[in-house]
Amino acid sequence: MAFNFSVLASGSTGNSLYIETEQQHLLIDCGLSGKKMIELLGQIGRRPEDIDGILVTHEHSDHIKGLGIFARRFHTPVYANKKTWQAMSTGIGEIPIEQKFEFAPNTTKEFGGLVLESFSVSHDAADPMFYVVHDHEKQLALLTDLGYVSEHIKGLINNSDAYIMEANHDTDMLMMGRYPWSVKRRILGDTGHISNEESGLALTDVFGDRTKKIYLAHLSKDNNMKELARMSVGQRLESVGIELGREVNLCDTNPDHATELTAI
C-alpha cells in the first residue's frame, strides 16, 4: 500500500512535511505561521482540520513557529520527545494536556498503518531527532538539521524509496559570505548542517535499487542555490555510476510553496 507526501516548505525560514494514507494525515514539523501552514495545505488540496497529528523534530523556530497556534486552533495532537517538549515550551505557548504526547528518540510509533521510526541526530538542539516512515515495503527518510551522517543513521535510512535530504550550504559561498565566523563555525561543525558535498557523499552510501526520488532540503537562503545543490549532489551520484533521470530524480524543495503531492 502506497502513501502520499508533500514537502510543504523547506529552508532556513520554515519547514514542514505532510504525509497521508487513507486513514492518517500527519505533519512533521510546523515551522511557518499558522496562516501560512493553512495556505500550504491548501496548495495540495488538504484541510488543516484533517491533520491527525504533528510530529516535532526539534525546537528551533523554523520547525515550530506555527505549532502552538495550529495545534490549539484545530485541536491537533502533538508528538515530541521529553527534552524537546521542555525546550519549546516557551516558544509555542500552552498546549492542552490531552493533545500532548511523547515520542522518544530511537523508537517507533504506528499511526493508522504507517510506522514512524525516530532516530537521534547531531545538531545544536535539546534532543533533535528525525524520522523514517515505513508502510509495508515502502520507505521515506527525512534527514535535515545535522552536522554529519553517522554510519548508524546510514544503516537506518539505507535503500529508501525516497529521501528528503539536507543540502544546506555550498561551503565556498558560506566561507565567502557575510556571516560572522562564529556562525560559520557553528554551521560547519558536527552539530551544525551538512553541505551539498556532504549530502551527496552520504547519498552515495545509502542509495539503493528502490531509490527513485531525492528531495534536496533545508537550503540556506544566503549560502546556497538550487542549481548549485543539484549540481554538487548530482555530480557525486554520477561519480559512482548512478544515472540521474533514469535511476533517480533529483527534486527541489521550496521555502514558501509545497511540492506536488507524490505517491511512494
Rank of each mutant, 00 (worst) to 15 (best):
A2W: 08
A2F: 10
F5V: 00
L8P: 08
A9L: 05
G11W: 10
G11A: 07
G11S: 10
N15S: 09
L17N: 08
L17V: 07
Y18T: 00
Q23M: 13
C30T: 10
C30I: 07
C30M: 15
G34M: 13
M37C: 05
L41Y: 13
D50N: 15
D50E: 14
D52M: 10
I54S: 10
L55R: 12
V56R: 08
T57N: 06
T57W: 01
T57H: 02
H58G: 03
I64M: 02
F70V: 10
R72D: 03
H75V: 00
V78D: 12
V78E: 11
Y79H: 09
Y79T: 06
Y79F: 15
T84Q: 09
T84R: 04
W85R: 02
E98C: 08
A104D: 12
T107D: 05
K109E: 11
K109Y: 06
K109L: 13
H123F: 14
F130V: 00
Y131G: 00
Y131F: 15
H136D: 14
H136Y: 13
K138P: 01
T144W: 04
Y148V: 00
V149C: 14
S150C: 06
E151H: 11
H152K: 14
K154G: 11
L156R: 05
I157N: 00
S160Q: 09
D161P: 05
N168D: 08
H169A: 06
D170K: 13
D170I: 05
M175I: 06
M175P: 01
M175Y: 06
P180F: 03
I187A: 04
T191E: 06
G192S: 07
E197G: 01
E197H: 13
L203K: 08
F207Y: 15
D209N: 11
T211P: 05
K212I: 03
K212Y: 06
K213E: 04
A217C: 11
L219E: 01
K221S: 10
N224A: 09
E227W: 05
E227I: 05
R230F: 14
S232P: 00
R236V: 01
S239H: 10
G241C: 13
G241D: 09
L244M: 04
E247L: 03
E247P: 02
L250S: 00
D252C: 02
T259H: 08
T259E: 11
T262R: 14
